[in-house]
Design a protein around this nucleic acid. Structure first.
Ligand SMILES: [Zn+2]
Ligand SMILES: [Zn+2]
Ligand SMILES: [Zn+2]
Ligand SMILES: [Zn+2]
Lengths: 162, 162
DNA sequence: AATGAATATGTTATAAAATAACAAGTCAAG
DNA sequence: CTTGACTTGTTATTTTATAACATATTCATT
């Protein structure tokens, strides 16, 4: 399979993309003895519908459409669970959430966020995180978590504008 | 002078550090024909009081103490001006703002945020931004802006805990 | 000095994002 | 069946950020 960002930013069989990722998520949840309850599963499905990040309240709207109560904790609790277990990433720059496209593979994602089509992809490789670790190490800073996010224009949207 | 992160995370003559940065900011403002009005100047001074990031409402509290009205736009407008002109950085991960310690020098900062003492420093070098540009370039993504932020423990706080 | 455009401030109100707190339900192990 | 951990339901509130519009100030030009 092509690397993540190339796939996300191109036309692809997203139905298959989504299905495979959801199956992978289910395997992980099963393997770790976690409970992918209805609201959690539906939340993940909602985020897998596209490669765009969704705000908690957009997720909540769609959960309401699926019969859940319109109360912020409903969405935040499901999202927090998914983030805690690596199935969803939080995009701080957008106050939003995006499904992880490679759940189970330990990774330190750097995000590429298209501000034209709103697609969010994980940048290939570990170079960005490695550079951050190196820069921190040089001054004796010990990193626990990082947010590596870039906003700009994806290949398809550059093409379209040109 | 020692590189930024080393200075920020160590005991240093912060009165001089603050004074020098404020002077530098004034030079930039003068050179670019901008107006460092009282509320903007005071906002910058507030952020220069320490190397910790402050939320907009913390800044507002201190502006109130200095005689300005307690209304969010007062703080947000001053902060937006300072951010737009490179005198202050926005730390997305904290929903907060920190004074830039090297105003005028074009840079693509990566932030090191100590979650023990709340100090925020700009990581040395351009390695992190370079890595992000390289990763994006590899998939044809064109970056406009980036947020590169790491949370962890600064040298002093590691020492203290050990 | 008077004019007018651009910039900056004052003010009210609201939107958007996130969490606190506590009660009630579910479920599997002992 | 009971205990204890986890999950959900629900109300309310807090925190962060912006919209919108009126007024005032600045500054270049007449
Ligand atoms: Zn896809
Ligand atoms: Zn795009
Ligand atoms: Zn200092
Ligand atoms: Zn520290």
């Amino acid at each position: 399979m092509r690397i993540d960002a190339e796939r996300v930013f191109s036309a692809h069989d997203h139905a298959a993309c989504r299905r495979a990722t959801l199956e992978r998520a289910e395997e992980i949840v099963a393997a770790e003895g976690l409970r992918l309850t209805p609201v959690r599963r539906r939340t993940l499905e909602i985020l897998l519908e596209s490669h765009q990040a969704l705000g908690a309240y957009e997720v909540l709207d769609r959960l309401v459409a699926a019969g859940f109560a319109r109360q912020p904790p409903v969405a935040y609790r499901a999202l927090d669970f998914l983030v805690d277990h690596g199935l969803v990433h939080r995009i701080r720059r957008l106050n939003a959430f995006a499904a992880c496209m490679r759940p189970g593979e330990p990774h330190r994602p750097a995000f590429l966020i298209c501000d034209t089509c709103q697609a969010v992809a994980e940048a290939p490789g570990t170079g960005v995180a490695d550079a951050m670790l190196a820069a921190a190490g040089a001054v004796g800073f010990e990193i626990e978590r990082m947010s590596l996010e870039a906003v700009g224009r994806c290949p398809a949207c550059r093409e379209a504008r040109a």
